[in-house]
C-alpha cells in the first residue's frame, strides 16, 4: 500500500475489556498521513470503543496508543488540538443555539470567539442552515444535528479526523458534499479515520479499509486488495464473507415467523 511518509497514529497491542467481555483483542495498527480509513465491522464489534480510546474517553485499556508520535497517556491533552471528532450518538448541548455551541467548541480548540463564529456561520451556510443558526439545537432534525457535529469537528482545521458514523441521517445531497470534503481534505494530507455501515460509501471513498470482527482486525487493505484476496464483487459481499455470514434468508424467515406467532 502506498502512503505518505508520516506515521500519524499507531496502536500497539491495544486490548480493552468491558467487565468480562473482551472487546478489543491485542490490536496493532499503523496509520499514515493522508489515508482515508474506512473502519467497518458488525454491530458491537468495538469500532466506537477504539475511537473513544484514541480520544481519551476510555482510560482503562492496555496496550499503547500513539498519536503524532506520542503516547496519549503521557502527552497530556495538547494532541487533541489537532483532532476533530464526531461522536456516534448526537451528544451535544442541545439547549444552546448552533452559534453558541460552535463558538464554544471552537474556543475550546483555541480559536477566538469571533473567528469561530465567523467560520461557523459560513459553514452552516454551506449546508443551507444559516436560517437556524440562532435556533436551539434541540429544535433541529436528526440530519441537521449531524451537520452541526460535523462542522464542530472541522472548525479548527484538524490534521486527523475521527468520524464515528458521520453520515448517519444525512440526505443524499449532503452525503455527496461530505464525500467530496473528505477527498479534498485527504489530498491536502489530512488523515481521516471513519466508521460507517454504508458499504457503498466506504467502498468508494476509503483508501484503506479495516474490518473489525471478534475484537481483531480481520481485513486490512484497499478495496482492490480486499477484492482480489476474497474473490467477491462488492464490499458488502466481502463483509458477509469475512464475518462468516451467509444465512440472511433463513434469519429473516425466522424473524417474520416469530413476529406472527400466536402466543397462547
Amino acid at each position: 500500500m502506498d502512503h505518505g511518509p508520516g506515521k500519524i497514529l499507531s496502536l500497539k497491542g491495544l486490548t480493552k475489556w468491558y467487565g468480562e467481555k473482551l472487546v478489543l483483542d491485542d490490536i496493532d495498527l499503523d496509520v499514515y498521513e493522508g489515508q482515508i480509513i474506512g473502519y467497518i465491522g458488525p454491530n458491537g464489534a468495538g469500532k466506537s470503543t477504539t475511537v473513544k480510546i484514541m480520544l481519551g474517553l476510555e482510560a482503562s485499556y492496555s496496550g499503547e496508543v500513539e498519536i503524532f508520535g506520542q503516547n496519549i497517556k503521557e502527552s497530556g491533552v495538547a494532541y487533541k488540538k489537532r483532532i476533530g471528532y464526531v461522536p456516534e450518538s448526537a451528544d451535544l448541548y442541545d439547549n444552546l443555539t448552533a452559534r453558541e455551541y460552535l463558538t464554544f467548541t471552537g474556543e475550546l480548540y483555541g480559536l477566538t470567539a469571533d473567528s469561530a463564529d465567523y467560520k461557523a456561520r459560513l459553514l452552516m451556510g454551506v449546508f443551507n442552515l444559516e436560517d437556524v443558526y440562532d435556533s436551539r439545537i434541540s429544535s433541529y432534525s436528526k440530519g441537521m444535528k449531524q451537520k452541526v457535529l460535523l462542522i464542530s469537528s472541522l472548525l479548527h482545521d484538524p490534521d486527523i479526523l475521527f468520524l464515528d458514523e458521520p453520515i448517519n441521517g444525512l440526505d443524499a445531497n449532503s452525503v455527496m458534499v461530505f464525500k467530496e470534503i473528505l477527498a479534498q481534505l485527504s489530498s491536502q494530507g489530512k488523515t481521516i479515520f471513519y466508521s460507517s455501515h454504508i458499504m457503498e460509501v466506504v467502498q468508494k471513498i476509503s483508501s484503506r479499509i479495516l474490518l473489525l470482527n471478534d475484537g481483531k482486525i480481520v481485513a486490512d487493505g484497499s478495496f482492490e486488495q480486499l477484492r482480489q484476496k476474497n474473490k467477491e464483487g462488492s464490499l458488502e459481499e466481502i463483509f458477509n464473507q469475512l464475518t462468516g455470514f451467509n444465512e440472511h434468508q433463513n434469519l429473516a424467515e425466522d424473524f417474520v415467523q416469530i413476529v406472527q406467532r400466536d402466543h397462547r
Binding site: 480520544l55 481519551g56 474517553l57 497530556g76 491533552v77 495538547a78 494532541y79 487533541k80 488540538k81 483532532i83 471528532y85 461522536p87 451528544d91 451535544l92 448541548y93 467548541t105 475550546l108 480548540y109 483555541g110
Partner: peptide
C-alpha cells in the same frame, strides 16, 4: 460524565 464527549474530546485538561 456527559461533558466528556463535548469537552473531554477537546484539548481541555481534566
Amino acid at each position: 460524565v456527559r461533558d466528556q464527549t463535548v469537552i473531554g474530546t477537546r484539548p481541555v485538561d481534566h
